[in-house]
Design a binder for these strands. Structure first.
Length: 269
DNA sequence: AATGGGACCTGCGCGC
DNA sequence: TGCGCGCAGGTCCCAT
């Protein structure tokens, strides 16, 4: 499930590989993933445009085009961008590029979201995004937490609160900060808030430097895996020993999401 | 404001 | 072996 580190990795890969290339044609195999505008306008607006710049906001990829429009891509859970693409069963859209090779958008579950916009800043979802973790200061973050009575794990995953963190990194960040996922944000001590801040920045940065975590469908632009999975300490490790204290990692449901934690290192206080 | 549920989807792994 | 079922989770939407 692509979160900030995975989307950032793809963004950097795209910068190296597809920026400057022209979209010479588009094949749409499943129009469901084209959310706006109409299919014909989507194709028409992209064909012939050059990819000038790639950006990321939260988990959204943005490609600015030479015709002043923007292509936004949300991979949701199972979306992939692959270059060079080899059309396969879950390939939903192929962008034919001036290199003679294809950029494929694959998405097993069709939750992915492609839009062609006059300006990506107009997208409501992007307007509603909270700050990027790396743009926050400790003081700002502590202040934001103090205003929220909700449980810390769903809060970290709330894109309007802070952008880019999903289920996997929320679990790893809370483990690293030794905070139970059910703690209320406003009840964390200043020291805990600081630990959370540092864990969040360190883990996201480390995961980016590893090229993300390949669990489920995530792969890099080349189709290669991200290497951060080997550093996962709790996510997906139910009944396995905690790397710190050897207690068995537990899994519970919190806000309808699978939540992994160490019952000893992350005591509920 | 916070919380909980269902909807959207498909493939996988499980139990029988 | 085959079938049905629950589960995975990002986001939206509705209800309480």
């Amino acid at each position: 499930m692509p979160e900030l580190p995975e989307v950032e990795t793809i963004k950097r890969d795209l910068e190296q590989i597809v920026v400057g290339k022209k979209i010479t044609g588009i094949s749409v195999y499943n129009p469901k993933v084209i959310r706006e505008p109409s299919l014909s306008k989507f194709k028409q607006g992209l064909t012939g445009a050059r990819i000038n710049r790639v950006l990321r906001r939260g988990k959204v990829l943005i490609m600015e085009l030479s015709n002043a429009k923007s292509l936004t891509i949300h991979l949701k859970m199972t979306g992939q961008l692959i270059y060079p693409g080899l059309k396969q069963k879950d390939t939903r859209v192929t962008f034919h590029l001036s290199s003679g090779k294809d950029l494929d958008f694959n998405d097993q579950r069709l939750f992915g979201d492609l839009r062609l916009l006059d300006d990506w800043r107009d997208l409501k979802f992007i307007q509603g995004l909270g700050p990027e973790p790396k743009d926050l200061t400790l003081t700002q973050f502590q202040d934001m937490l103090s205003r929220k009575k909700t449980k810390i794990k769903p809060l970290l995953m709330d894109q309007q609160f802070i952008s880019g963190i999903g289920n996997l990194y929320a679990a790893e960040i809370l483990f690293s900060a030794k905070i139970n996922p059910q703690r209320k944000a406003c009840e964390l001590s200043p020291r805990e808030k600081e630990a959370l801040f540092n864990s969040m920045r360190d883990i996201l940065a480390e995961a980016v430097s590893c090229g993300g975590s390949s669990v489920d469908d995530y792969v890099r632009l080349s189709g290669g895996k991200g290497d951060y999975k080997k550093y996962h300490k709790v996510y997906g490790r139910e009944d396995k020993p905690c790397p710190v204290c050897k207690s068995l990692i537990e899994r519970t449901a919190l806000g309808g999401r699978g939540t992994y934690f160490c019952p000893k290192c992350q005591k509920k206080v």
